[in-house]
Design a protein around this nucleic acid. Structure first.
Lengths: 355, 355
DNA sequence: CTGTTAGCGCATTCAC
DNA sequence: GTGAATGCGCTAACAG
């Protein structure tokens, strides 16, 4: 039962109306040469009059070539990903490609479904930022040889091109900043440790703490993927007997939850507690106190992803590359020197490990 | 030159491997009845082994039916739209549809291109939140009878289903709140007046000012679509001789810019100046002071949009409906009572117009 | 230059 | 139940 849309004129309609063959009509509508100016005009005119719109589904099917790129994003709520979307859209557009956005909402099952969906639309290439482990994603991609770039939440052991931020180093930098401010009891609040980059961040934090001789004060708290959870978790952290003098949140959602908790606990930034956020966002620099944060080089990451993908799209080099970008620390007002009394309290006489 | 992907097994391959006809294979893969259990198993097994993935481009072309909905969004930076995306995605998924997101980035030209793109992908329906005037959008949709719902930046004169927030009323409520706090010099900062809803917001503000007898103090300032512009504009407003005691920003970007300006001007919220934001965002309630805002009922709007669209998808009723939702005021800390000295200064003896 | 033709991968009759 | 056959709308040879 072919119950398709009423009409929606087709190429044949246009050809008929213009008194030419479909082949000719196809050519002029595709902008290919080898058509006389007269016929060109006839066809364009007919197309305009009929309100012709190319059925690119059919065109792609026939030509076995698609100009769309699937982009699977884990969380549109995170401004880092949004900025990446914008950057990639621009690059893709410049090369004549279109982005097909697929939102996984931090849900591995949905992510698998999204990947399947995008793939079934015969995209020319894929960009994936996986949620949780990337096993789901990878298993969805089995024996599929579309050009692929994975980003952000992957590591160099991944068997495809990857672009990531050096989270380990960034977390060390961030921790170092807090330590330099005199903080000892620094708690790292992370959404989930099965996110590769979150894990790296936590490890970077731990290493920096160790290097500062503060392993006894190191504390990593896992708070889940939602703001509600991270809020509750942070509230717990703040209520503990030896409250930390600084919080280092491992990602955007955690920052939101932590800030709300700090507010609810009646604490002031940075006087009562310092906060450093991994992941920057526009609003962080707009209020007072501004939130100190670690800013990932979105532009560079986007460009790198696109370059890697484009190279494959062009059929050049299939050598696997792992790019690692450097994030920078943006010190604002939410991180301050520890207060003397806190400091005392925070440095048990017993614990003073070497280095 | 058919240079398509190496292989990517097709239905025919599966049928061959299973020793059945494509017709049969198609049926079992589509889950249609009338296939013996034995063959069903053979086919599924073959498909699994070959890593078969349906080419939905081909399927849609053949069946003249698509299960995707195009959603054209003006600005992914705005959390209101993001939340709408999430809500709509859920609703669509529930009904077996998939959303194809198209980002217009507040650029009418790009919007037109996005609409064309989505349409050429033969979507079953469209949801559009236009940028600037909706003429671009509408002209792109000419003689196209896909089910359509327009939202947010449209008015009831639009010849299609619409779902909007009662911006006029919401702006009146917001202005009323500020007036009740004793403010007189309230400036409304709006991105652009060619956005239908922004215009309504400005008008609501103006009417409320008039009703309060404050038309002499009413001032609408247009600040452009970027944070940079709104920042600069607000800085100008704050530097003026008779600085307003309250700012009412007409949308998210404007709020961001205004906040940065307030910060740069060294003013404190709400002591030195009050700020009310049209459009809520998660971060607004997380810091101190929390930003008072007007919150649109995203969930309800999303549901309404989907219902309207789904009704058309089902072929029911083609009667045009205009739904209008009510926003609510979320008073937080950024709006406070005007200080006495400011108040005096703000009420010229001469001006006390009737009602 | 232009028209004719043969499919792209699949869903769907329609005989058997 | 099952298989063969027929296009969906379009592009890309190919022959004229």
């Amino acid at each position: 039962m072919d119950d398709r849309k009423k009409s929606a004129s087709t190429l044949k309609d246009v050809a008929n109306a213009a008194g030419v063959s479909v082949g000719t009509a196809s050519k002029v509508l595709a902008g290919v040469a080898n058509v006389s100016e007269a016929r060109r005009r006839q066809v364009s005119e007919a197309a305009r009059k009929l309100g012709y719109r190319r059925n690119s589904i059919a065109a792609e099917l026939r030509s076995c070539r698609s100009m769309s790129i699937g982009f699977v994003v884990p969380d549109l709520t995170n401004s880092f990903f949004i900025e990446l979307v914008c950057a990639l859209e621009d690059h893709a557009l410049e090369c004549g490609y279109r982005l097909i956005l697929a939102h996984a909402q931090e849900d591995p099952e949905r992510e698998a479904e999204r990947i399947r969906f995008v793939l079934s639309r015969q995209v020319a290439g894929m960009i994936i930022i996986p949620c949780h482990g990337y096993e789901h994603a990878i298993s969805e991609l089995r024996e599929c040889d579309v050009p692929l770039v994975m980003a952000d939440r992957v590591d160099s052991s991944f068997p495809a091109n990857t672009v990531t931020t050096d989270s380990h180093r960034a977390a060390m930098d961030g921790t170092g900043h807090l330590v330099a401010l005199g903080h000892r009891r620094i708690t790292f609040i992370v959404n989930a440790l099965d996110l590769v980059n979150s894990r790296e961040r936590a490890q970077g934090y731990l290493e920096a703490m160790r290097l500062a001789g503060l392993e006894n004060h190191a504390r990593v708290v896992v708070c889940g993927m939602s703001e509600t959870e991270s809020h509750a978790t942070t509230l717990g952290v703040l209520a503990a007997s030896e409250r930390p003098t600084a919080l280092f949140t491992g990602a955007n959602v955690a920052t939101l939850g932590a800030l709300r908790a700090i507010r609810d606990a009646g604490l002031r930034l940075p006087d009562d507690i310092s906060l450093l956020s991994f992941d920057d966002a526009p609003w962080m620099s707009v209020l007072r106190p501004g939130i100190s944060s670690i800013h990932q080089p979105v532009e560079a990451i986007g460009r790198a992803i696109w370059n890697l993908l484009h190279r494959q799209l062009q059929g050049e080099s299939s050598e696997i590359v792992h790019l690692r970008m450097r994030a920078d620390l943006r010190v604002r007002d939410s991180t301050g020197a520890v207060r003397y009394d806190e400091c005392r309290e925070a440095t048990p006489v017993s614990a003073a490990p070497p280095l």
